[in-house]
Computed example of a mutant assay.
Amino acid sequence: MPRLAEATYTEQPWRIHELASDFTVEDVWSFRTPGAGPDDFPAMLAALQAAGGPVRQIWPVRFLFAIRWKLGALLGWDKPSAGVGERVGSLRDRMPSDMRAAPRGPDNDDMPLKAVYELDMESARELANKTVHTVMHLGWVQGANGDYELRMAVLVKPNGWFGRLYMAVIAPFRYLIVYPALTRQWERAWTGRSR
């Protein structure tokens, strides 16, 4: 999975740009989906849903998430009062009228990010706590080899200096452990689905 330049996200005509212009682009990544065509985005989302969230990751990722959730519980980072709809409004509240009928997509307890919308070529999920308000945007684009591929952008609005410090502290763990494992899981989800 290659990390991509921010422009590969910002130059796309994604609808998320209308909703999250006050967020910072933290990461942009590409995932291989061999043989994928322009209409396969719903199939990719279904494969990701079937693959599960962090609870189905390798043990180092599960361990990191367990530490994060334990710290969050001890320090009060994840209280409902710090979440979407409380500390911050949902991006759904910002949706223009032509998007309001868009489906959200499924939510489950394995995925801490909650669905905002699902369109033919993109979807968004969000999470807020005392550290950040973050959005995971998934988009479907034609890659250099002609196949379509999944792109993930992580958008972040840190909650003050502590949120910025938090993002800096977790960056090495994201790049060295979480994203490589996520790549393997998501690319396996696609190839397993296409057999």
Rank of each mutant, 00 (worst) to 15 (best):
E122P: 03
S21Q: 04
E6P: 13
E126C: 06
R62N: 11
R195F: 12
Y148T: 01
R68A: 14
W190L: 08
W77K: 13
V135M: 06
T191G: 05
R15L: 14
A51Y: 07
A102E: 00
S194V: 14
Y175H: 15
G52A: 14
D40P: 03
W69G: 09
S30H: 07
V132E: 02
M152E: 07
W14H: 08
G163Q: 01
R188K: 06
R174G: 05
P103D: 00
R174E: 08
R100D: 06
L150P: 03
A102T: 00
F23V: 01
V55Q: 12
L176G: 07
A36W: 05
L176N: 05
R125F: 12
L91D: 07
P180H: 00
R125T: 04
P2A: 09
R56E: 04
F173K: 01
L74D: 05
F23I: 04
L4C: 11
A115T: 05
Q12D: 13
L45V: 12
G163N: 08
E126K: 01
G105C: 00
E122C: 03
L71D: 00
A43K: 14
E118R: 10
M44G: 04
G143S: 12
I67W: 07
F63Q: 02
L64M: 10
V88M: 04
L64D: 05
M136D: 14
Q12G: 15
S90Q: 01
K79C: 14
D109N: 11
